[in-house]
């Protein structure tokens, strides 16, 4: 299999759609329903990129990125937000956290695949 992509979203539908959009491109998708589960997954897999929702129960997207960046072994993993949030203020928060991108839902499969390919290459 190709690079492992961690999809963190509390919506099972979105996780499924991300999987369907990226698997044909040769990526392996690992799923997590919130930030806490995602952190656990980071320890189990060789994650090349995290696609993260902002609003989630238990641990939201911002908290997850903060926690990720604090861990030296995971801080290099690029993160892109995939969320319904579109406010510039929130995007700024994401930028300050050091994420690589911000995709507003709904996404188009080919566009998502392009972004992922671009970020995973880097």
């Amino acid at each position: 299999m190709g690079s492992q992509i961690l999809c963190v979203d509390d919506s099972v539908t979105i996780r499924k759609l991300v999987k369907k959009a990226l698997e044909p491109e040769g990526f392996e998708i690992i799923e997590a329903e919130n930030g806490q589960v995602a952190l656990d997954q980071c320890g189990k897999c060789e994650v090349s990129l995290c696609i993260v929702d902002v609003n989630m129960p238990v641990m939201d997207g911002f908290q997850f990125v903060e926690a990720l960046k604090q861990k030296p072994e995971y801080s290099h993993i690029p993160v892109v937000f995939l969320t319904t949030e579109s406010a510039a203020q929130k995007k700024q928060v994401g930028k300050e956290l050091g994420v690589k991108g911000w995709i507003v839902k709904p996404f188009e499969a080919p566009s998502l695949a392009k972004v992922v390919k671009m970020l995973v290459k880097q």
């Binding site: 919506s11 959009a21 609003n55 709904p106």
Partner: peptide
Amino acid sequence: NDVTVHLQYQDSVRQ
């Protein structure tokens, strides 16, 4: 691809 875009509105509805 178009349908999958529309399917994502379920997430918006949920939120």
